[in-house]
Design a binder for these strands. Sequence first.
DNA 1: ATGGCGTCACCCTGACGA
Length: 260
Amino acid sequence: MVMKIATWNVNSLSVRLPQVLAWLAANPVDAIGLQELKLTDDKFPHDAFKEAGYEAVAFGQKTYNGVAILSRHPLADVVRNIPAHADEQARVIIATLDTPTGPLRLINGYFVNGQEPGSEKFAYKMRWLQALQDLVRAEMAAHPRLALVGDFNVAPEDRDSYDPVGLRETIHHTTEERNHFKALLELGLTDTFRMFEQPEKSYSWWDYRMLGFQKNRGLRIDHILVSEALRGSVTACMVDRAPRKNPQPSDHAPVVVTLG
DNA sequence: ATGGCGTCACCCTGACGA
């Protein structure tokens, strides 16, 4: 049984809802993690997604952040944010998908941006990443079939950046951020995108400014990681650049993993 | 060094993103 799981930072669900619905209609997935909803839960469009065949759990807030999981399979055991890490910002939602091949634990995160190394926001990013790592470790112990998806706001390697030299040790590129990404891999997670040969200069985000997308000046910061128990069934992972070409696009493109 | 683009909130300029 083939399953697909996706992640997409939509940069305002209110603005992007028509594009999300159109993309789901053209690209049916079993589940998708959305980030940067920028709306409160009372405004979450449950009905529109239900009509499209998706049950949803959302964790939003006004103006900033906000995450949701949409699924064609029943959702259970929902966790919002990192329980051990008090946070005003809605950045994590976790649920178990009851799939025909068994339960699948899905962690969807909108990782902290961090602004600039040395800033207070960067320090918050480091604390948040450590807390997330601890949470993922515990979740993996309880749920062998687990996927961690989202906007990680980390370009793990030089090849994940359009200008690794010019941007060395700047935000998304610092050794500290990359070490946190590696620590997630060391928990037993695999970056599914790198399981396969990919086009050169594959990115998932492009700046709105300076014709970033047209010039393919981007970063690969949206990721899908899976546990050992799922790794063997992964048959593909790709970035779908098509929605980035839409009028009024999100600055991020969806990433999709296929489990055979 | 800054702004460049887009979104949101609130009152039109500023915060924030990446």
